[in-house]
Simulated assay, not measured.
Amino acid sequence: MGPTEKTIKRLFALSGNLCAFPGCSLPIVESAGTITGEICHIHAQKAGGPRFDSTQTEEDRHGFDNLILLCRRHHRIVDSQPEAFSAEALEELKKIREKEMGRPEQATDAFFAKILLGDLRRVIVNNDSGNVIVDSPGAVQANTVNVRTTRKAVHIQPAAGTIGADQEASRYVQYLISRYNQFASADRSRATTFSYGAISKNVEKSFGAPWRMLAIEDFEPVCAYLQQRIGKTRIAKSNLSKGARSFTIFADFGKKSGDKG
């Protein structure tokens, strides 16, 4: 069970096609049809999720009163800080946005409702080749995905509009990860064995999805996070004291083929 098209039509109309977070002017769906927002549950739809209410019925859980439209970034923010963004607080944000921007439903709202629901539930298998795209880009995950293939591995292909689909952005994130691993692994004072894959897992934990699957809007925050982690390493601190750079900024990255900073 999930939200109905009728419910999302009403939600979209009353949102004014804007993220409900205060001061955010990002549209939920851009004029070209690009989805930049998400259907979010105020009380989580599953036990263990943020603000989950065990007394809710399934109908109430996916009903209008328990849903709010947010851009992808603010969806992650409110769900990662449920103590700060309580159910009552989100309900109030929703009411404020509805009062400011709400309008009567229009014929085109059915189209927007369909694509928002499609983004919420989307699982695409391309030609049964083992390439699978699941709810990408974004933080909302499919409930259950069963994949059967004769291949030894299933590769997840980044969708359009993600960091992984942008060649230069992807190369730069990989460069920062490599630079962090280079500096951090050289620290012989570590008490534990260094893991080269840990930094990617930390990005996934902080941003809610593997970095390749994150929306391109998250590129700058991801880079800032990685640059900060690099800056905390002993080598970077030593470089700073000598006035030397520890990484190349994106604006200068790739000006020379094979740039290594």
Rank of each mutant, 00 (worst) to 15 (best):
T162Q: 01
G2E: 10
F207A: 00
A13G: 12
Q227N: 05
P27C: 03
Y172W: 04
A251I: 08
R190E: 05
I230D: 02
K94Y: 09
A160V: 14
V147W: 01
I28S: 03
L226M: 04
F21K: 02
R212F: 09
R72P: 00
Y175L: 03
W211K: 00
Q106N: 13
K9N: 12
S189C: 02
E58K: 09
G33V: 10
S31C: 01
S86L: 06
T144H: 11
D218C: 02
E220S: 10
D252K: 12
E217Y: 08
I77Y: 04
L90S: 03
N127C: 10
A209D: 10
A159G: 10
V154K: 04
P27V: 07
A169S: 12
A142V: 02
V78F: 01
W211C: 00
K260Q: 14
R103V: 11
P104I: 09
P82V: 04
A165D: 15
G254Y: 08
F21G: 02
G16K: 05
G102T: 08
Q182I: 09
I156H: 08
R122D: 11
R171L: 10
R179L: 10
K232C: 05
Q167R: 14
N143A: 13
R121D: 11
Y172R: 04
R148L: 12
V147Q: 01
G2Q: 10
A13R: 00
I42T: 06
A209I: 00
L14D: 03
